[in-house]
Write a protein that binds this DNA or RNA. Structure first.
Lengths: 327, 327
DNA sequence: TTGTAAGCGTTATCAC
DNA sequence: GTGATAACGCTTACAA
């Protein structure tokens, strides 16, 4: 790896001049510029970002903290973030927190140690001291924060929509799978659904679950049909759980959507490949990732935001795990 | 953020001494050490990794280059890598190449600019000049390289197994979905299957596809049943394609596994949640990620490897998209 | 228009 | 045992 010094020598100028052409600031004579540029090409020189980062006290790195990249919802989000960052010359340091406070703190710490210029975090404890005293731009994504920029979907409305769509399709004994209590979006989905059902005076059952992980999804699905065998409509807390429910229904010989209808949440890529394809509440994960990245970049570059909180609308995606009905 | 200088001042010693206790080398008196450690705690000081990286010309960062994190196979792999790296105090800079040479080069370039100590890459052109002249430890994963360390599954054997399992289950008109020609693992799966079928003198049809992406999977599935309506056994190039085939079969009213049997590849987390749950050739993505990370760390830390190429065995995971058969 | 030199926060070498 | 100090590769006053 050649350094700025090598380039300077090769071009017969000082490092300051090289730096000037590199950063396009200060005066530099046309001829000098050409010489320098030639030298840069000759040596195929690229600046050492670490040295830059040290001097400027800020890098071109952004920290991305996700609960778990294996949860199929997050790769899309991450990809949205990555695409925008990449296009703007920022790179991503990525970490999985497993919703674990300690891991989260450790990552934030190493982000700081690496001079990241900002962080995008999907965490539930956004008010935590950890973030409030962080001297860095932070954008929360898939989570909402009152005082910090955040990008999230209208989960509560999603819950309401799910409930209404099942009601329209004739369900009268609905089960809601609640999702982990410590995950705010899950709670809002649940509350929205419960609210809409109560408003119509419709009875519903609730099944608690403790995680969004696939391994926990299957026992939950079993439990559901065991506890509430008469259920004719199920609102799952996400598409993973919904898939498990679908698979369990198949196992039990319950026909979907004839005997029981199912609605998921998220609209992950695979939900339309299920059999039957899963009706679900769409959250635009990729776009949310892009939006969060855009906001963070604005923040980093000192632009002021008109809006701190971006709420994405959700929408019902009708597939075949719910019945056809005329609109 | 406090610096080593602040700590030195606070403790009444020189920065050299602080550095000594930080790195645990050189002599330092017990009492001095205590003073320094107290100062570190008081100021909640953590060393600036960027400065370290500049001086030592190596960071604690590792570059991870994946084709596309949205392909459900890679999050598992990435998570395996991440867990091991995290446990060894390395952080990950992550990039998506989309199997695109230019993007790949750009990423490698920025990895270098950020002083990464090594890279893990899942690329098909492992012989490329790009890597040969890279002065860094590189481990290829999910791809095999003759001269560089690599971690991969026995794709060819996977193909053979898939073919044999379908034959055992009575399939006599098998279709193989070939997968993108430029992806070596896909080709090996294909070749393995074709080989096993030819060896038995069984006729088979081949459907070419150009990508592993979900959006391309559906048209491929349609095309398959259109072109080869009599097929009674399908070997898909991965679980995504298999899911699409499953969904298409459902749409066409073809019963799985009675009318047509399907085998996928990868055993991504969701395949067991499909209906019917998908029989597939398991590749231990998470473990392969861990292994690759372990090898890279060995390389970084200068240990010698007994083995350059780690081939993971694959295995048939029997679920319900294939018929039961007595063993 | 260009060069010199200080400084970013560390580590390592050499005196003392 | 400990402290100055040069060096890592860069940017930016400031001088020339």
């Amino acid at each position: 790896m050649s350094t700025i010094k090598d380039v300077a020598q090769h071009a017969g100028v000082s490092v300051a001049t090289v730096s000037r052409v590199l950063n396009n600031n200060g005066y530099v004579h046309e001829d000098t510029r050409n010489k320098v540029e030639a030298a840069i090409r000759d040596l195929s020189y690229t600046p050492n970002e670490v040295a830059r980062s040290l001097y400027k006290r800020k890098s071109k790195l952004v920290g991305l903290l996700l609960p778990d990249i294996m949860n199929p919802y997050f790769p899309e989000l991450a990809r949205g973030v990555e695409d925008v960052m990449q296009a703007n010359d920022y790179r991503l340091i990525i970490g999985n927190s497993d919703e674990n406070k300690q891991k989260e703190m450790d990552y934030i710490q190493t982000f700081i140690q690496n001079n990241v210029v900002g962080v995008i975090s999907s965490t539930d404890d956004s008010a935590a001291e950890l973030y409030t005293k962080l001297q860095l731009p932070v954008v929360f994504v898939d989570r909402m924060s009152d005082d910090r920029p955040s990008v999230y979907a209208d989960s509560r409305e999603g819950g309401r929509i799910a409930a209404r769509e099942l009601l329209r399709r004739g369900c009268r004994s609905i089960s809601i799978i609640q999702g982990p209590v410590h995950i705010r979006t899950a709670q809002e989905r649940f509350e929205g659904a419960a609210e809409a059902l109560s408003a119509q005076g419709v009875h519903y059952d609730v099944l608690g679950t403790t995680s969004f992980s696939i391994s926990d999804a299957e026992p939950s699905a079993e439990e559901l049909f065991r506890k509430y065998p008469d259920t004719d409509g199920i609102i799952a807390s996400n598409d993973i759980i919904a898939s498990a429910v679908l698979a369990e229904a198949y196992r039990l010989g319950r026909r979907v959507p004839d005997d029981v209808q199912i609605i998921g949440f998220d609209n992950i890529l695979l939900s339309r490949l299920l059999a039957p394809p899963l009706s679900t509440i769409h959250q635009p994960a990729y776009d949310m990732g892009r939006e969060a990245a855009g906001i963070l970049i604005s923040l980093i570059e000192g632009r002021v935001l008109e809006q701190n909180n971006i709420q994405f609308p959700v929408e019902f995606v009708e597939r075949q795990s719910t019945r056809k009905v005329e609109s």
